[in-house]
Simulated scan of single mutants.
Amino acid sequence: MCAHVRTFRQGRLSDVLACEQRMLFALRRPTRVGGEHVSQVTKNNRQDPVTKFCLTMEEFRRTDPGRVRSPQEFVTHFFPHDQTNATDRVFLHMPREVRAPIVSAWGIRGAKAAVRDDDAKVRVVVHDALLAGDIDAATFEEGIIAGTLIDWAPLQEWWTFWRTGRVSGAPVQKALRTARELNLFDDRWFLQNLEGRGGRLKGTDTICDTLSKDQIVAWVRGIHASGDGSPMGIVNALGWDTILAKVSEEALLFALDAFAKKVGLVAPTVTAPATVSATATSATAATSATAPTATSATSATSATSATATSIATMSAEAALEELGSIDIAIVEDRNIKTDVPPPPEEKWSDPVPPS
């Protein structure tokens, strides 16, 4: 092959490799959309309805009506620490080019150094900054904006953080309304997973429990007028907003927890089957097998003790007869034949007189 051909092909190959590297860097490089760092390749796809739900609720959590967890609780959950140790539950899920601008914006690390830092170094730097007071809880939460958190943090981890807060009133209504708008559940599923009064009421009974008589009559009239007795017709006749406002908080939370299990925000619980050890089984069998022997021995001991007591109260002749009967019984139990004739008596001849 000619030298200029080899040089040409090598040059083309290097161009292709360089182009691929630029494309990969462009895909992972964060861009700014509305002042927010957004990576084109994220762990959680924002087009997924569950991701959209989590993002909506996290943005709502950072408002006054939706504040179910405080900034300090945000730090405690995602970066728990004490004077000596820290656990990182958020930065380790982010690529370096995503977390570096956050850390450098806090002024605790240079921009270039933050990109080079590995997970352990980031944990140490943030831990030292929190202990020194260089960043507080509010700064920590503001630095990790809602979009970045939902893009990279495990959604089950985020749900655990959100659900263990003070979820009542507006937040639970917002959650169910958002999930229904995203078609994450339909009206049939909602009525099937609505329970109140500790499970004693279900479905429409749960809704009627908190309605007045006039409201129930108007609801039935609305269903009759629409001619639609399907779950959607039942809900529309009363109104979704009315249901969220009137149904008890206990019932709404029950439906919300069922929804979290339905979409995978709660890890399924695995129940280990109950197993019986072979040793315990064999020990039980051995005990059962030896039980008759022990019972027989106990019975024999009791019988012997009773006989000894009765012999002590007898006369000498009667006692001898009783003992003799015991010996005979024992011999008979051992299957020893007692009817063997005695050996023949030896006959002695008269001595021969001396001659």
Rank of each mutant, 00 (worst) to 15 (best):
A113N: 10
D48V: 12
R69K: 13
I102T: 09
V115P: 00
G110M: 05
R29E: 13
V90M: 14
V98H: 02
A113M: 02
F78K: 01
V33H: 11
V33W: 01
R116A: 14
A113H: 04
P30N: 03
P49H: 02
R22K: 14
T7I: 13
C19H: 09
R28N: 07
L92I: 13
F25Y: 09
K121W: 03
R67C: 12
E59T: 10
E59A: 10
N44C: 07
G11Y: 06
V115Y: 05
Q47A: 10
V38W: 12
T56C: 12
R61S: 08
V122Y: 08
P101T: 06
E36S: 10
N85C: 12
D64P: 02
E97A: 09
N44D: 01
Q72A: 15
N44Y: 09
A120E: 10
C19F: 09
C54F: 06
D82Q: 07
T42R: 14
H77V: 01
R89K: 13
G107F: 00
C54I: 15
I102Y: 04
R61T: 12
I108M: 06
R46C: 10
G110A: 02
D64W: 11
D15P: 02
K52M: 13
R99F: 01
N85E: 14
K121N: 04
V103K: 02
V98I: 13
D64F: 01
S70I: 05
P80H: 01
L92N: 00
R46F: 15
N44Q: 03
G110I: 06
G66K: 09
Q83W: 00
A120W: 00
N44H: 04
F53T: 09
R123C: 15
R28F: 00
D64Y: 05
M23R: 15
V115C: 05
K121M: 06
Q72Y: 01
E59V: 07
D119C: 11
E59K: 14
V75A: 07
I108A: 00
P65K: 02
L24V: 03
S39W: 04
I108P: 08
L24D: 10
G34W: 03
R69Y: 06
C19Q: 13
F60P: 11
K112W: 03
T42L: 10
V122W: 00
E73G: 13
F60S: 10
E36I: 13
P30V: 03
K52W: 00
Q47K: 11
R12Y: 02
D64R: 15
R89H: 15
D82P: 11
E97T: 08
R69V: 03
A86H: 04
V103C: 04
E58W: 09
D88P: 08
T76G: 08
V122F: 06
D82N: 15
R9I: 15
T63Y: 02
R116H: 06
T56N: 03
P101K: 07
T76Q: 14
R29L: 05
A114W: 07
D118R: 04
E36H: 03
V41A: 14
V122A: 13
A86E: 11
I102D: 00
